[in-house]
Amino acid sequence: MTQLPAKTEKKLGLVIDLDTCVGCHACVTACKGWNTANYGAPLSDQDAYGADPSGTFLNRVHSYEVQPEAAPAQIINFPRSCLHCEDAPCVTVCPTGASYKRSEDGIVLVNEDACIGCGLCAWACPYGARELDQAAGVMKKCTLCVDRIYNDNLPEEDREPACVRTCPTNARHFGDLGDPDSAVSKLVKERGGFDLMPELGTRPVNKYLPPRPKDKPAEVSVLAPLLDIETKGFAGWLDRLLEKL
C-alpha cells in the first residue's frame, strides 16, 4: 500500500559527515557495483563509452564552495541519496503501490514488479533520490542495501550499506535513528546534525553533520604590501647602495 505507516519500529538511515567527506566518489562506485550485481534490475548505463554517456546511480557526490562572511572559503563534498523520509511524498503519489515504506524499519523501497515507470515518485521527491532506469523502465532508488544489512550469508562487518562499508574516511554512518541511544543518534546530537530542505515537510530520517569551523590564518594587515619596511644590516646596506646607483 502507498499509505505511509503511522509509525515505524525502527528508523534505519544514514548519517553523513560533511566534515570528513573527501569527495572520492568511492561510495558512488560501491553503490553502483552492489546494486547492479545484486537485488533488482541492474543500474544500466547508456552510451557508456560514447560521446554522451549517462546512467542510473542511487548516490551522487556534489561539491560546493561556501564563502563565510569573515573566514576563508571552504570546499564541501556533498553525497546525495535517498533520505528515507518519514513523510515520504514519493510513496503516497504512487498509483500502483510499488513505492512503499516498510513499517518494521522505515526503509523506502520500490517493488519493481509492480512499477509502471510513470516517474511521478521522482517528480515528488525534492532531493532527486530516484532515477528511472532507461533499460528496465522501472524506478530505481537507494534500498539502504536491504540485501546486505539482514544478510546472514555475509560476515557481520559487511552487514551495512555498501556506501558505508567502503567509505575510506568514515564519513558515512549507518544505524537506527529512532533509538535515541544508538551511536548514530548520539553523533547527530553531539555534532548538530541537520535535515535537508526542512521547508518541504518531508521529515528526512538521514541526517547530515556540518563541517567543523576551520582555523583562521594569522591576522595580517591588508595594507602589508604597501607598508614602508625599513631594512637593517647587510640588506639595509644593499638597499641604500642600490638606491644611490
Binding site: 561539491s63 560546493y64 564552495e65 573566514a71 571552504q74 570546499i75 530542505m197 556540518p210
Partner: peptide
C-alpha cells in the same frame, strides 16, 4: 537549505 550549508555562508556549486 538544500545542502544545509546556508548557515555557514554563501553556497555555490564548485563541481
Amino acid at each position: 537549505s538544500a545542502t544545509g550549508l546556508g548557515g555557514l555562508g554563501a553556497v555555490r556549486q564548485f563541481a
